[in-house]
Design a protein around this nucleic acid. Structure first.
Lengths: 116, 116
DNA sequence: TCAATATATTGACAAATATCGATATGCTTG
DNA sequence: CAAGCATATCGATATTTGTCAATATATTGA
């Protein structure tokens, strides 16, 4: 169920994208294409410890607990979050490398400046 | 119909994301969350001139002309592409600033390293 | 073992959207 | 103006997905 970007900064926009690579990358963008999930990332990243459990995230999002759990699972499966159990609670953390990989995928090819 | 990021690198993940900001950013990610659209960006960016007309994009994508036009419109409305008419053809170009803005939105808050 | 709490899963429904064929619009050239 | 080509829009359909209530699972503590 979990996906993974094998390399840190694949060429992607730098050269012609195969459809399989495109689909793999599109999955990541699709996961970020939901305001609630961006807010989750933001909330978790903003914690002093860098980690947050589900119960801390429900109220600020204004969504039901199952829905929050669902979004966390989507983020986790895509590699945006790690989770760690501590007693009854499960703490989620943002994975910086995944965000960096996406960033790297958006680089354009070098171009000799100026053209008619 | 067109959206716009008012600033180049809004804070976003650096601090708590308001739901309106989150939705605005999510729209951009949603546009990229489709393999065909990533391929379009890749194909256009890979042109020697940096520009491509619709008819050049149909065959490599393997989609119908209306569908390709639709995806180009979505990319255009979101600010990922510009378009310019030259006679019968319409040339699309990638807007680097929009990609950079997305990149900037994925930066995490600075964190004092090491925590139990 | 039982109760309480935190989290995950299931099932169902509504909303969003990718896709296509058909058709419209716009430009160029005879 | 008519024909031909490039592109856009429309209408319909199938698929995906966000959401919740209900329920299941897992952990802790009495």
């Amino acid at each position: 169920m979990k996906t993974n970007l094998s390399t840190c900064c694949p060429p992607l926009l730098r050269e012609h994208l195969q459809s399989s690579e495109a689909e793999q990358l599109a999955v990541l963008f699709r996961v970020l294409g939901e305001a609630s999930r961006l807010q989750l990332l933001s909330l978790i990243a903003a914690q002093p410890t860098g980690a947050a459990c589900v119960c801390e995230l429900i109220e600020p999002l204004g969504l039901s607990q199952p829905t929050v759990s669902h979004h966390l699972k989507v983020l986790y499966d895509a590699g945006f979050l790690t989770k760690e159990r501590r007693g009854t609670w499960i703490y989620y953390r943002v994975v910086p490398e995944t965000l960096q990989a996406i960033c790297g995928s958006l680089k354009l090819p070098d171009r000799k400046s100026a053209a008619p």
